[in-house]
Lab assay of single mutants.
Amino acid sequence: QAKEDFKKMMEEAKFNPRATFSEFAAKHAKDSRFKAIEKMKDREALFNEF
């Protein structure tokens, strides 16, 4: 479920497709859906799949 929420957050964010993961992470670090994925490498993997 956390992965689905994370993907939904990325869809809602409508970020620049050229944005890096660190830019995305800095902007969304306080979002509970971002925090729900415990490991940063897992967050980055989901970001890269998107």
Score class of each variant (00 low, 15 high):
Gln1Leu: 06
Gln1His: 03
Gln1Arg: 11
Ala2His: 15
Ala2Met: 09
Ala2Trp: 06
Ala2Asp: 05
Ala2Gln: 13
Lys3Trp: 06
Lys3Gly: 06
Lys3Gln: 14
Lys3Asp: 05
Lys3His: 09
Glu4Ala: 08
Glu4Val: 07
Glu4Ile: 10
Glu4Pro: 00
Glu4Cys: 00
Asp5Ile: 01
Asp5Ser: 07
Asp5Cys: 02
Asp5Tyr: 03
Phe6Met: 02
Phe6Tyr: 10
Phe6Ser: 03
Phe6Gly: 01
Phe6Thr: 02
Phe6Trp: 04
Phe6Val: 00
Lys7Asp: 03
Lys7Phe: 15
Lys7Thr: 10
Lys7Arg: 12
Lys8Ile: 06
Lys8Leu: 12
Lys8Glu: 09
Met9Asn: 04
Met9Lys: 00
Met9Arg: 00
Met9Thr: 02
Met10Pro: 03
Met10Gln: 04
Met10Tyr: 08
Met10Cys: 14
Met10Ser: 04
Met10Leu: 15
Met10Asp: 04
Met10Asn: 02
Met10Trp: 03
Glu11His: 10
Glu11Phe: 08
Glu11Ala: 10
Glu11Gly: 09
Glu11Asn: 09
Glu11Tyr: 09
Glu12Ala: 05
Glu12Pro: 02
Glu12Cys: 04
Glu12Phe: 02
Glu12Tyr: 00
Glu12Val: 04
Glu12His: 02
Ala13Val: 10
Ala13Asp: 14
Ala13Lys: 13
Ala13Thr: 12
Ala13Pro: 06
Ala13Cys: 12
Ala13Phe: 13
Ala13Trp: 13
Lys14Ala: 14
Lys14Cys: 10
Lys14His: 12
Lys14Phe: 07
Lys14Val: 10
Lys14Leu: 09
Phe15Thr: 14
Phe15Pro: 11
Phe15Tyr: 14
Asn16His: 10
Asn16Pro: 11
Asn16Cys: 12
Pro17Ser: 09
Pro17Leu: 07
Pro17Ala: 13
Pro17Val: 07
Pro17Ile: 07
Arg18Trp: 10
Arg18Ser: 15
Arg18Met: 12
Ala19Pro: 07
Ala19Ile: 15
Ala19His: 12
Thr20Glu: 08
Thr20Trp: 00
Thr20Pro: 11
Thr20Gln: 10
Phe21Ile: 03
Phe21Gly: 03
Phe21Thr: 04
Phe21Leu: 03
Phe21Gln: 02
Phe21Val: 03
Ser22Glu: 15
Ser22Thr: 13
Ser22Tyr: 06
Ser22Asp: 12
Ser22Trp: 10
Ser22Ala: 14
Glu23Cys: 02
Glu23Arg: 00
Glu23Gln: 06
Phe24Asn: 06
Ala25Gly: 03
Ala25Ile: 09
Ala25Thr: 08
Ala26Ile: 09
Ala26Met: 12
Ala26Leu: 10
Ala26Phe: 06
Ala26Asn: 09
Ala26Ser: 11
Lys27His: 10
Lys27Cys: 08
Lys27Gln: 15
Lys27Tyr: 10
Lys27Pro: 03
His28Trp: 00
His28Arg: 03
His28Cys: 11
His28Tyr: 13
Ala29Gln: 12
Ala29Gly: 13
Lys30Tyr: 06
Lys30Ile: 09
Lys30His: 12
Asp31Met: 00
Asp31Val: 00
Ser32Pro: 14
Ser32Asp: 10
Ser32Met: 12
Ser32Arg: 13
Ser32Gln: 11
Ser32Glu: 13
Ser32Ala: 14
Phe34His: 01
Phe34Asp: 02
Phe34Cys: 00
Phe34Asn: 00
Phe34Ala: 02
Phe34Gly: 02
Phe34Glu: 02
Phe34Tyr: 15
Lys35Cys: 14
Lys35Asp: 05
Lys35Met: 14
Lys35Thr: 14
Lys35Phe: 08
Lys35Glu: 11
Lys35Ser: 11
Lys35Val: 12
Ala36Met: 05
Ala36Gly: 12
Ala36Thr: 05
Ala36Gln: 08
Ala36Cys: 09
Ala36Leu: 02
Ile37Val: 14
Ile37Arg: 01
Ile37Pro: 01
Ile37Gln: 01
Glu38Leu: 07
Glu38Cys: 06
Glu38Asp: 13
Lys39Asn: 13
Lys39Leu: 09
Met40Leu: 07
Met40Ser: 12
Lys41Tyr: 10
Lys41Leu: 06
Lys41Gly: 13
Asp42Arg: 01
Asp42Pro: 01
Asp42Asn: 03
Asp42Phe: 02
Asp42Ala: 03
Asp42Lys: 03
Arg43Glu: 00
Arg43His: 00
Glu44Asp: 01
Glu44Ser: 01
Glu44Arg: 05
Glu44Ala: 04
Glu44Thr: 02
Glu44Met: 04
Glu44Asn: 03
Glu44Tyr: 03
Glu44Ile: 11
Glu44Val: 10
Glu44Cys: 03
Ala45Gln: 13
Ala45Glu: 13
Ala45Phe: 10
Ala45Tyr: 05
Ala45Lys: 14
Ala45Asp: 15
Leu46Trp: 05
Leu46Arg: 02
Leu46Ile: 10
Leu46His: 03
Phe47Ala: 05
Phe47Lys: 06
Asn48Trp: 04
Asn48Lys: 11
Asn48Ala: 10
Asn48Asp: 15
Asn48Ile: 05
Asn48His: 13
Asn48Cys: 04
Glu49Gly: 06
Glu49Lys: 09
Glu49Val: 07
Glu49Phe: 06
Glu49Asp: 11
Glu49Thr: 06
Phe50Trp: 05
Phe50Arg: 06
Phe50Val: 09
Phe50Gln: 08
Phe50Asn: 06
Phe50Ser: 11
